[in-house]
Simulated scan of single mutants.
Amino acid sequence: MESHGIVVVMPPASDPSAASVDAFSTRAARPLVVLTAARADDIYRHRFTAAHELGHLVLHADATGDSRQEKEADAFAAEFLTPQDSILPFLPGRMDLARLAELRGVWGVSLHSLVYRCRELGLISDATASRTYQRLRALDGQPGFTAESVSNFPGERPSLLRQAFELAAKEAGLSVSQLAHELAWTSGRVQDLLGVQEQRPVLRLVQ
Rank of each mutant, 00 (worst) to 15 (best):
residue 95 M to W: 00
residue 86 S to I: 08
residue 79 E to A: 15
residue 99 R to V: 01
residue 98 A to D: 08
residue 105 G to Q: 06
residue 85 D to F: 01
residue 99 R to D: 02
residue 82 T to N: 08
residue 85 D to S: 10
residue 86 S to C: 07
residue 108 G to Q: 12
residue 79 E to C: 15
residue 95 M to P: 03
residue 80 F to I: 14
residue 85 D to P: 00
residue 93 G to D: 11
residue 91 L to G: 02
residue 105 G to V: 03
residue 98 A to H: 07
residue 103 L to C: 04
residue 88 L to M: 09
residue 104 R to E: 07
residue 79 E to L: 15
residue 86 S to T: 09
residue 83 P to S: 12
residue 99 R to N: 03
residue 97 L to W: 06
residue 98 A to V: 03
residue 100 L to M: 02
residue 111 L to Q: 14
residue 102 E to L: 12
residue 80 F to G: 14
residue 97 L to G: 06
residue 96 D to H: 09
residue 97 L to R: 14
residue 110 S to K: 10
residue 105 G to C: 06
residue 83 P to V: 10
residue 111 L to P: 08
residue 93 G to V: 05
residue 108 G to F: 05
residue 100 L to T: 01
residue 102 E to H: 08
residue 97 L to V: 08
residue 92 P to E: 12
residue 79 E to K: 15
residue 83 P to C: 13
residue 93 G to C: 06
residue 102 E to M: 09
residue 97 L to M: 11
residue 82 T to V: 14
residue 105 G to L: 04
residue 87 I to M: 04
residue 79 E to Y: 12
residue 84 Q to F: 01
residue 84 Q to V: 08
residue 94 R to Y: 00
residue 89 P to Y: 03
residue 94 R to M: 01
residue 98 A to G: 10
residue 96 D to M: 09
residue 100 L to N: 04
residue 106 V to A: 10
residue 108 G to W: 03
residue 85 D to H: 07
residue 100 L to C: 02
residue 110 S to D: 10
residue 88 L to A: 11
residue 87 I to S: 04
residue 105 G to F: 01
residue 95 M to K: 10
residue 90 F to E: 14
residue 111 L to C: 14
residue 97 L to Q: 12
residue 110 S to G: 13
residue 111 L to M: 15
residue 80 F to V: 13
residue 99 R to E: 04
residue 82 T to H: 09
residue 106 V to Q: 12
residue 80 F to M: 15
residue 101 A to M: 06
residue 87 I to F: 00
residue 88 L to T: 04
residue 103 L to N: 04
residue 92 P to Q: 12
residue 85 D to N: 06
residue 98 A to W: 00
residue 106 V to S: 09
residue 106 V to G: 02
residue 109 V to K: 14
residue 92 P to W: 05
residue 83 P to Q: 15
residue 110 S to V: 06
residue 109 V to Y: 08
residue 108 G to E: 11
residue 88 L to D: 03
residue 89 P to H: 07
residue 94 R to V: 00
residue 104 R to M: 06
residue 90 F to L: 14
residue 88 L to P: 01
residue 110 S to Y: 05
residue 106 V to M: 08
residue 88 L to W: 00
residue 108 G to I: 08
residue 92 P to D: 11
residue 86 S to H: 09
residue 99 R to H: 05
residue 108 G to C: 13
residue 90 F to T: 08
residue 106 V to H: 08
residue 92 P to V: 08
residue 84 Q to W: 01
residue 103 L to Y: 01
residue 99 R to A: 09
residue 81 L to D: 13
residue 95 M to F: 01
residue 101 A to E: 11
residue 104 R to T: 05
residue 100 L to E: 02
residue 79 E to W: 12
residue 95 M to G: 05
